[in-house]
């Protein structure tokens, strides 16, 4: 009776997940093992040609570590930038918190395309930063700020920063302030309290924030495409290229699946390394 009612309640979500997550994954899985063909998306029969093509050519295969690296660096940058922000908001007076939350979330109000395009205006060779520096006579040639990893990480970090700050904030705010006081009463100075109490207690937030930003960063398309200008090859860009421009569905599917599995492995390793035994 009660079970039946609970099943009814989760049914809509279950159907949604089945239709739009399980089914597409099965389709992609099947497609990745189809035989390639000329003049049409895929041919008759099954083969592992898609995977062979990906792993046998450096141009494609090397995009995988490149993408993972990009995701990891973006997570780290977000963590370093986001932690002080989260700490500040968590300890700010209650009446300021709403406003500070708003400021952190405000980037999400602007579409991702607009934000990425904004970065091209700032970072380009004839962009705001380079022009200013040149006019001031500080540089002669424009600094390479765009169409490289630096620009992509910068723009990604900006776009995904809120996804780091929010989980950090949640874990910092649930921590009982008396615990920090207890540490001080036991003789720990402010910095020691941070290092030995506040930081380790916020580990759940660090964990979920890093995973969130990592997953979002490696699967993002618009920002690497605009700011990286196809010169920073991420696997995601290659997948879209294979599926839409080259019309090689089995190859694109194989790459997409390889990316997803690799990301899963990286996340698992990270979760394992930062395992929290105390909660």
């Amino acid at each position: 009776m009660k079970r039946a009612r609970i099943l009814m309640l989760i049914a809509p979500v279950a159907v949604l997940i089945f239709l739009f997550i399980v089914l597409p994954y099965v389709t992609v899985l099947l497609m990745s093992f189809r035989a390639p063909a000329d003049g049409q998306p895929y041919g008759a029969g099954f083969s592992v040609e898609g995977y062979r093509q990906f792993f046998s050519q450096n141009y494609y295969a090397l995009s995988l570590p490149q993408t993972m690296g990009l995701g990891i660096v973006t997570s780290l940058v977000c963590l370093l930038l986001g932690y002080p922000v989260a700490l500040h908001i968590a300890t700010a007076p209650k009446r300021w918190r709403g406003l500070l939350y708003g400021i952190v979330l405000s980037p999400l109000l602007v579409g991702i395309v607009v934000r990425s395009y904004g970065w091209t205006i700032l970072l380009g060779n004839a962009g705001v930063i380079n022009t200013t520096l040149r006019n001031l006579g500080l540089i002669e040639r424009p600094l390479p700020l765009m169409y490289n990893e630096f620009g992509v990480v910068l723009a990604l970090a900006h776009v995904f920063l809120p996804f780091m700050v929010l989980p950090l904030l949640a874990s910092l705010q649930t921590a009982d302030p008396a615990v920090r006081q207890a540490a001080r009463s036991l003789g720990a100075g402010r910095f020691t309290v941070f290092r030995r109490v506040t930081l380790p207690m916020s580990m759940p937030g660090i964990q979920s924030g890093c995973i969130l930003v990592f997953v979002l960063a490696i699967s993002s398309y618009v920002t690497p495409a605009l700011v990286g200008g196809m010169r920073v090859k991420t696997t995601t860009l290659l997948v879209v290229d294979a599926l839409i421009d080259q019309f090689q569905w089995p190859f694109g599917s194989a790459m997409a699946l390889t990316l997803a599995i690799s990301a899963g492995i990286v996340v698992l390793i990270f979760a394992r390394l930062t395992r929290i035994r105390w909660s």
Binding site: L186, G187, G189, M201, S279
Partner: peptide, 30 residues
């Protein structure tokens, strides 16, 4: 003086134990 320099032992209503440390580590902290 700062709290850490006062040489006090304090027990809080919420106990305020370090959740990420074992009983032994909690006691060793001070």
């Amino acid at each position: 003086k700062l709290p850490e320099d006062r040489d006090i032992g304090m027990v809080f209503q919420s106990y305020a134990l370090f959740p990420h440390m074992t009983v032994e580590r909690n006691l060793a902290f001070g």
